[in-house]
Design a protein around this nucleic acid. Structure first.
Length: 416
RNA sequence: GUGGGUGUAGCUCAGUUGGUUAGAGCGCCGGAUUGUGGAUCCGGAGGUCGCGGGUUCGAAACCCGUCACUCACCCCA
């Protein structure tokens, strides 16, 4: 049997109502907060991602779907949304107008990772980006939007983790300090962390191996090495969150995996998921626009992993529906008339269906029942001869005979 | 990339220390008075037991390999 590609998932009819629910809410809440939708391509030049995400990161080193175009240039399926948005913003001069400085997107991303609960090779993100504002209230606004999105979906037991990783200079100083601290303990930490010591020392802080956690227990914190500007910026964000009653957990060990992050970083986790418990995360990336040869522009954003959110949603999403009219036409004479009626109902905007597989009244009504029809329109040869049809209410079982000429009008009044 | 777990009907799963026609529930189709659904009862269809090899008189079961799925490491949304 032909199967889908590893790590790619079909979203089946049973699940699509959940997805529509999430997507609708994303559009609504983003628009409420003044974000405009942007739709960017699904692949870009490899260089864009390599430069913005960082050449040393796992994403760029081993997770990108990279392929040559016909002319030999290297293209990559987008592994995240921010880089493409920044590229588009610069290409179309969107920073010039206040109305296009706050953007959001929704769509699939691609990373070649080993699939796992809540981790797929094609996954969907809802993300926002706000450009040009350094004010801490902007950080709070973005976090508040993320928080509101999850609360509106009814998600429970969430934790907002927040930290400031400072500006690049702060981090440089801190990394030196951290290395000095860990250096004498190097023999006593896990092999992974020994490797990280030279590649990405910050990551040692959030290693889950007990011996590493113990070794870094009294390590200096990045928080204590923030420049006065970064520290006060961060302080004002925390005050802002308190001011609007968003609970948070300070997590001095929260590091982000992409190179472009600076200062504020945050993530929201759920205890009901497996190892991949982060459902939304983001932070500032004040240096990225300039890195991509734009004007020096502060920016902040987040991304939500929609598959992970879907895992937390109840299976049944109640969607208010208009009643379904099931047209049960059978018999040589009646069937064409029934089809005509079916089509007419649809033209009128009424939800109507039938089942061509069922040939007698019994099986037609069974189908009507299985489809959850509110009414069945019974039209057999007897009715055809008298130019009538029977409207049967499937819940009350009451039914009445109606002239074909008047039936669509009658149905219209029942449908509303 | 590394490790663990699991592969039997459309779905969820039984299947005894290896033993002859591989089962159940749900779902699907049909019947129970000719043109009236759901409940009940009865019947039916549907399976190369993931695939390949081996052990054996005999393998769904044991062994080896392989593939797929899955969870975890890693990483991240």
């Amino acid at each position: 049997m032909l199967r889908s590609i590893k790590g790619l998932k079909d979203i089946l009819p049973k699940q699509t109502p959940q997805w529509r629910y999430m997507e609708t809410l994303a559009h609504t809440l983003a628009a409420q907060s003044g974000f405009s939708e942007i739709r960017i391509p699904i692949f870009e030049s490899t260089e864009l991602y390599a430069r913005s995400i960082g050449g040393e990161t796992d994403i760029v080193e081993k997770e990108m779907y990279t392929f040559p175009d016909r002319d030999g240039s290297s293209l990559t399926l987008r592994p995240e949304g921010t880089a493409g948005v920044v590229r588009a913003v610069l290409e179309h001069h969107l920073l010039e107008s206040p109305s296009t400085r706050k953007l959001y997107y929704l769509g699939p991303m691609f990373r070649h990772e080993r699939p796992q609960a809540g981790r797929y090779r094609q996954f969907h993100q809802f993300g926002v980006e706000a450009f040009g504002i350094e004010d801490p209230f902007m950080d709070v606004e973005v976090i508040a939007l993320l928080w509101r999105f999850f609360c509106s979906l009814g998600l429970k037991d969430l934790t907002l983790h927040i930290n400031s990783i400072g500006n690049p200079q702060d981090r440089e100083h801190y990394i030196q300090e951290l290395k000095r601290f860990i250096s004498p303990k190097l023999g006593g930490i896990c092999g992974n962390c020994q490797r990280r010591f030279s590649t990405n020392p910050l990551r040692i802080l959030d290693c889950k191996v007990p011996i590493c956690q113990e070794a870094t227990q009294d390590a200096p914190t990045l928080f204590d090495h923030l420049s006065p500007e970064s520290a006060s910026h961060f302080q004002r964000i925390l005050e802002g969150l308190n001011g609007i009653d968003i609970p948070f957990s300070l997590n001095y060990r929260l590091v982000r995996g992409l190179d472009y992050y600076s200062r504020t970083t945050f993530e929201i986790t759920s205890p009901h998921l497996g190892a991949q418990s982060t459902i939304g995360a983001g932070g500032r990336y004040d240096g990225l626009v300039a890195l991509l040869q734009g004007p020096s522009t502060p920016a902040i954003g987040f991304a939500v992993g929609l598959e992970r959110v879907a895992l937390l949603l109840p299976e049944q999403i109640a969607s208010p529906q208009t009643p379904l009219f099931f047209v049960a036409g059978f018999g040589k004479e009646a069937k064409p008339l029934a089809f005509k009626l079916l089509n007419e109902l649809r033209e009128l905007g009424i939800q109507a269906d039938t089942d061509y597989k069922s040939v007698n009244l019994k099986s037609l009504l069974r189908s009507a029942d299985k489809l959850g029809a509110g009414y069945a329109i019974i039209l057999g040869d007897d009715e055809a001869r008298s130019e009538t049809a029977i409207i049967r209410n499937m819940t009350t079982k009451s039914q009445e005979s109606v002239k074909l000429k008047e039936i669509s009008q009658k149905i219209q009044s029942l449908a509303s």
